[in-house]
Design a protein around this nucleic acid. Structure first.
Length: 187
DNA sequence: TGGACGATTGACT
DNA sequence: GTCAATCGTCCAA
């Protein structure tokens, strides 16, 4: 098992992540989700945390492909990224939304909400999977958070749009999601 | 050492 | 549609 399939540009790797699964083991429970929405970020992108270079916070983004980068937004929400590309180059894909496959009830309990609201946003994914800053830099080959490759989706199943909630480079179309999946975030 | 700010969410009008 | 919550991080002084 290796993550050479993520050793691509952040755009290609982000699209390749759609349909892949994350397995989260916690309190003896197994949570399994499918990635349905992502956004690409890299060092040459003004909207990326790595645009300013390597810092204490974003150093995980400079690790080899297949590590996790978790950050805290607005002091409230933890967001998960999958690091992509070459080690030493700060790039990755923000996991914006997932579809519960296993352990949905655990996620609903952690979220305090059911329905599609359970995981249809980056902060919601972080809460449903109970992630925090200590997971930044974690290898996604190891328990308790594992990334599992799935067959690549057809290009016709992927929609590309502008990103959400950023204040810079808002015109870059680097948000990708699975057509028709109800867990895709709204905005 | 301090102040400004954010790849968001949810509550409220 | 508007807006507050809340804190780790970054940078200026």
């Amino acid at each position: 098992m290796n993550f050479s399939w993520l050793n691509l540009s952040s755009e290609s790797a982000a699209k390749r992540l759609l349909g892949s699964e994350l397995v989260r083991e916690i309190d003896g429970q197994t949570l399994r989700v499918k990635i349905v929405e992502v956004e690409a970020y890299d060092q040459d992108d003004p909207a990326s945390h790595t645009f300013i270079g390597k810092t204490k916070r974003n150093q995980a983004m400079f690790m080899a492909a297949g590590h996790a980068y978790v950050y805290l937004i607005h002091g409230l929400h933890h967001c998960l990224n999958v690091v992509t590309g070459e080690e030493g180059y700060g790039s990755g894909a923000l996991i914006r939304a997932v579809e519960p496959l296993e352990g949905a009830e655990q996620m609903i309990a952690r979220r305090g909400k059911g329905g599609y609201d359970v995981t249809n946003g980056p902060g919601k994914v972080g809460q449903a999977l109970s992630l925090d800053l200590s997971y930044s830099g974690h290898s996604l080959m190891e328990s308790p958070l594992i990334l599992i490759k799935q067959p690549e989706l057809l290009e016709s199943d992927i929609t590309t749009t502008t990103r959400v909630g950023i204040s810079k480079a808002g015109d870059r179309r680097r948000r990708y999601y699975i057509v028709g999946n109800p867990y895709v975030s709204k905005k």
